[in-house]
Design a protein around this nucleic acid. Structure first.
Lengths: 196, 196, 196, 196
DNA sequence: TATGAATGAGTTTTCATTCAT
DNA sequence: CATGAATGAAAACTCATTCAT
C-alpha cells in the first residue's frame, strides 16, 4: 500500500503521491485506474471525486515531480554563497536516494510525455527556465565575489550545468542506486574547472 | 503515409522506420497495430509475418534509434584528429534536423522504457559505454598530441560530454527545430575549456 | 435467452448454467465471449468480474457437468437397498430428459477436453472413481444380502456398469430424446443377469 | 514430421493421416492450417489443392477414424467361430496401442462433433449399426452352435458389448497406455457370463 | 501443382468511465 | 463522498482463405 495511513481522510496529494510511486515502479504504460485505487487503498469509484479522469491524474503526477525538484532547490538556505555551495545543491537535485529516484523516474516520463504534448512542453520549459535563472543568479554572485572568471559566459555555464544534471540524472536511472554517488564526480569536476 | 512505395516488397526495416516515425510523432502510448499498418500501408495481419507481436516491433524500433545514433558516429572519418574534430561529431550526434529529431524522440522513449525494463536497460548502458569509449579514445589521442591538458581526467570528461549531449539533446526536443542550433554553443564552450 | 431474469444480481452460477446450455446446443468450438454475454444477458465486459478469462469459464462449466451428475446420484435416498434400487439410479444418471441431456453433452465435451488436458483428465478420473466406489458399495451390500452371487467380481461389475452407462449415455446424444428410454433396456438386462 | 517420406507425391491420405495425428495429440481446438501444413511438410497454400477448406479436412479426418475402426473388425478372419473369437476381436477394437489410441482420440472428437452436427451424427449412427450388426451375426452363430443360451437377447447383448467398448475405450484415453490392458478384463468377464 | 505473403474478419482481453446503492 | 458491478469501445492477436508468382 501507499503512503496513506489506513482510514485517513483522502486528499489529492495522497493520490498523486501514490501515482508517482506507481509510475516510478511500473512505468506510465502500466498505470491503470485499478492499480491506482489499490495502491491508494480506495475503490476505483472514489478517484473521480478528486480528479477529472485518468489524464488529469497523470498530468498532476507529472507536474508533481517538477514541483518537487524545484521546491527542493528553492528552499535550500545558504548564508554565504561560495562555489562550494553548488556541491550540496547538485547532490540534492540528483537521484541519489529512493525519494529523488522516484521523482526522477516520473520526470523522465514527463519529458517523454512532453515530446508530443504541447501543454507539458511548456511546463518543462518553464521549470527549466526557472532552474537556469536560479543558477545564473548564483553564478552572477560568484562572479562578483571573484570566485569564477569575469569573462565566463553565465548563460552557457548555467545551461551546461542544467544539461549535465539532466543527462546524468536520467542516465543514473539505469544504474543501481548504490553506484550513483560516483557518477556525480564529473559534475564536481566541471564546477572546479570554472573556478577563477 | 510513410516512406514506402505502395506495391513493393515489404521488409522489417520498412516497418521499423514507419514505427519510428509514428513513435516520434505521436508517442509510444498512441502506437497501435492499426496505426502501424496504416502508416506502413499494409493490413494488420501482415505485421505478424515480420514481428512476433507488438512488443517485438516496439523493441526493434527502440533499438533502431540506438543503432542509428552510434553508426553515424562510428562511420565518421577523420584524417587528422584535432580538438575541432569534436565539433562536427557533436553536431552530427544532436537532434538538429528532421531525421535526427526522429531518432532522438525514439531514443527518449527508449530511455523511458528502459527505466522499468531490464533488457532495455542493458541496451542503453551498452550503447552509452560504446559512445563513452569512442570519446575516451579521441581524448586520449588529443592528450598525446598535446591539444588538451595531460592531467585532464579522460573518463570524467567523456562522461561529461555524454551527459551534456543527452541532457541537451532531450531538452532540444521541447524546442522548435530552428532554434536548436543555438543550443549547441554550451557544448562547444565546454570543448574549448579543456584545450591546453 | 437463458434462464436469467433481466435485472437481477448476476452470479457465477448464472453464467455457468448459461454456458452449459450454449455448449450443449452449439458445441465448445462455437462458444464465444459474445455468445455467452448475449445468452447471459450482460455485456462482455461483465464476464471478467466473475471469471479469469474464457478458459476459466469453460473449465467451470465442464466441472459443473461432473458435479451435477454425481450430486444427483449421491443425493438419492433409499430405505432398503435391493437390486431393483439400481433401476431408478441408472435412469436418473442417464440423459433421458432435457436437463440431463444438457449435462451429458457438456460431459462429452469434458471427456474430449480431458484427452489433451492433464488437469481435466484428473477431474474425469476422480469422478469416475467416485461413481465406481458408489457402485461397489451397493454391490457389496447386495452381495451380503444375497441378492447377487458371492463370487461376483464387484470391481469388474462396477466398472462394467460405469462403462455401459458412459458408452450408452454418449451414444444416446446422437439419438432423439424420445427414443432414449428404449435404450436403457440392455442396462437393465445386465443388472438382472447378475442376480443370484 | 508426419508419416510422409520427404519428397514424395502428396495425397489426400497423407494429409488425413497427419491431421489425425495432430487431432490426437493436441485436440481439435488446436488444429490450424499452419499446423497441418507443417506436420505434412508442405505449405498452407498446398492444402486447398486437396481439400475444400479446413472443414473438409476435419470431416475427412473424423471419418477416417470411423473407417479404420470398422475395416479392422471387418477384415478379421476366423475359420471357426467360438465365443473365444470375441476376445481378439475386442482387443483389436480397443485403444491398447499407439495406433488405435490415435484412432480413438479422433473418434472421441468425432462423437463430440456429432453431438451438434447432423451429418456427423448420421455417420456415427451408421457405423454403430454396422458394428452392432456384425456382433449380432456372431451371436446368432454362437447361439446356433449352442455356445450361448438360446433365450439370450441378441440385440441387447450386442448393444451392451458396443456400449461397454465405447465407454471403456473413451475412458482408457484418460489412462496411460501401459495400464489399459488390465481394463479389458470386465469385457471378458461379460463375455464369459453369457456362455451357455 | 506449389508457394507463402497478404488479407481482414473474428476472437479474447483490457480498461476508463458511469451510476445505482 | 464511497463503492464496485456493469458497460462497451478499443486494443492485440489469430487464422482460414486468397492469389500472384
Amino acid at each position: 500500500m501507499a503512503g496513506k495511513s489506513s482510514d485517513h481522510k483522502l486528499s489529492r496529494d495522497d493520490i498523486i503521491t501514490a501515482v508517482a510511486e506507481l509510475i516510478a515502479e511500473q512505468g506510465l504504460e502500466n498505470l491503470t485506474m485499478r492499480n491506482i485505487a489499490k495502491h491508494v487503498g480506495c475503490s476505483v469509484g472514489t478517484l473521480p471525486h478528486y480528479f477529472d479522469g485518468k489524464d488529469d491524474i497523470v498530468i498532476a503526477a507529472l507536474n508533481w515531480s517538477n514541483e518537487r525538484i524545484f521546491s527542493r532547490l528553492g528552499n535550500m538556505e545558504v548564508d554565504e554563497i561560495h562555489l562550494e555551495s553548488l556541491y550540496p545543491l547538485i547532490r540534492m537535485a540528483m537521484p541519489v536516494d529512493g525519494v529523488s529516484d522516484t521523482e526522477w523516474r516520473v520526470r523522465l516520463c514527463l519529458w517523454d510525455y512532453a515530446a508530443t504534448n504541447e501543454e507539458m512542453r511548456d511546463t518543462v520549459n518553464k521549470i527549466n527556465d526557472s532552474v537556469t535563472d536560479l543558477l545564473k543568479g548564483l553564478l552572477d554572485h560568484l562572479q562578483k565575489t571573484g570566485e569564477i572568471h569575469a569573462q565566463q559566459d553565465k548563460d552557457a555555464t548555467a545551461m551546461t550545468l542544467l544539461h549535465m544534471c539532466i543527462g546524468g540524472g536520467f542516465n543514473m536511472l539505469h544504474t543501481p542506486l548504490e553506484q550513483r554517488e560516483g557518477k556525480l564526480q564529473p559534475l564536481f569536476n566541471y564546477i572546479e574547472s570554472i573556478r577563477a
